[in-house]
Design a protein around this nucleic acid. Sequence first.
DNA 1: TTGTAAGCGTTATCAA
DNA 2: TTGATAACGCTTACAA
Lengths: 331, 331
Amino acid sequence: MDINQVAQMAGVSRATVSRYFNDGYVSQEKRAAIARVVEETGYVPSRQAKTLRTGKSGLVGIIIPKINSASVSRMVAGITGVLNEVGYQALLANTDNDAAREVSFLRLFSERSKVDGVILMATVLTPAHDAAIAALPVPLVVLSQKLEGRSCVYQDEYGALRALTERVLSAGDRPAYIGVLEEDVAAGRRRREGFLAGCAARGVAVEEGACVIADFSIESGYAACERLMERGVSFDTLVCATDSIAYGAMACLADRGIAVPADVQVAAVGDSDISQVVTPSLTSVHYHYKTSGAEAARMLAESMADEDAVAREIKMGYDVVVRDSTRQKRM
Amino acid sequence: MDINQVAQMAGVSRATVSRYFNDGYVSQEKRAAIARVVEETGYVPSRQAKTLRTGKSGLVGIIIPKINSASVSRMVAGITGVLNEVGYQALLANTDNDAAREVSFLRLFSERSKVDGVILMATVLTPAHDAAIAALPVPLVVLSQKLEGRSCVYQDEYGALRALTERVLSAGDRPAYIGVLEEDVAAGRRRREGFLAGCAARGVAVEEGACVIADFSIESGYAACERLMERGVSFDTLVCATDSIAYGAMACLADRGIAVPADVQVAAVGDSDISQVVTPSLTSVHYHYKTSGAEAARMLAESMADEDAVAREIKMGYDVVVRDSTRQKRM
DNA sequence: TTGTAAGCGTTATCAA
DNA sequence: TTGATAACGCTTACAA
């Protein structure tokens, strides 16, 4: 069943049928005739052909570092919600934390414009990324990192960590920090800087060696905490770059008979569902991930609709959620 | 840059260029000439045109109930891994637990074969589903539910719950159960049946009203546990259909000063990352979600490659992971 | 082994 | 307001 058959059955030209589905520049009678035929046959225009002809696929590519992550999946949920609303489909590209694959997906999406737009959930931004981004023939929105001159939506990592740190240091004065790789500017560098700023604001010195690195896993959080103790760092306050790291660290402390929050208070970032169920419940920064995703999708939709929409940067707000893993009173 | 220009520059017909990229029925010299031009220009064939001509899009539709879920995202990770390997892209459709949207996505994917295959991560299977599935013009694999006569990959819910229940009842004899909706055959019905079978196998009676329903959230687990106690059900063993429910239930028990596992032991299904970090760590059934997703993708790839590949059902194995929330000794 | 030519199902241009 | 007609970029008989 194609447009020609519909045209024939309705006694019009195929151009008229096309108009019926698009502009709508069709007389009442012909319109009715076509409507009837469409009704009877259940005809639906071929997206493929339309795509070939118009160059628009109705697809949006989403590049994500890891689907199996609370923050990422919340952002994706926000994205797909908005996208479906405005008639786009999400094309998912999972890189499994491999920055090189990020670039190759960017290229894949560039080839002959298979997609109408791209959302890049970035971890690191290398020169290869810049090149691939520059070569992208369709609108792009960067999520989770700030990229100068590009539309992007990101969290206020610095502000959040600074606020969190100041807060917990109202009941502690020997801080330690478990972060992630600095190459990840947002989660690595900015969070650590925020932590240090918070310490400085409180006039608290950070002991040499009191900042260690983990990856995003629970196990590495455990290991990092162990390292801290082996180094002989003395701390009564532990700030972690992610909730997962904190879970690992808390397990490590528990195994050594160190009480949380009495001996060491723990705070982190991400506020995943389970942070309120672990014991003690975890003080954590809450980011509006789902909203961030929705926001990014909305910006992209705008850029796709309007050729020369101007780039915008959105810095999202945050909430510090105080729970039982820290000593200061809830405010 | 299109195939015609390449052909012209290489001094061959466009049919030859096409063969160069497909069959490979090209002489050495022409092959070399084309290779050079392709190299120089960076030409890449248009997928769109190829799709229109061949009817194959290189896309696979994945319908999921909720991306923001540990089990789902693990399955998706498995799927995308395999799919990328064999040259397909995943088209993600998130239904947000709305069965009606499941059907409408099924239809969307049917329209003019926008996708070459579909993986349906099912929760419920209504008559509307059956109809939409029957109308699907491309191969389908059902994930997480068993569907007679269709290729599917699912967990051994019955066996797992039975084994888990028998295991925990070696140290308890007053069981209770928090399940999910029966309409979800796999997670609802089969798990409950497995629980009851486990009780029966141990010769343990299940008290009237000792089985309640929650949804998949932590909060509803808390509420369900509360309900159990308000009803006056006396239990020393609590089996939950999902880890999230168990987290909620454990929080509820803790709030009432009931010790786990001393007073009540708790066990669940899913073995998500945090089950080993909550206190006490949670005894849970481990399913091989990522492998299930990979398996489903592999079956689909096979069906897409081979018109008349035969339907297969794969029942995945499981492991009972015993931790501190239950009383029986680790075996 | 290669080239010619006929589509695949649309939409856009133009003249009527 | 409508209908021819020409693309869009590719694949594939079929003939050479």
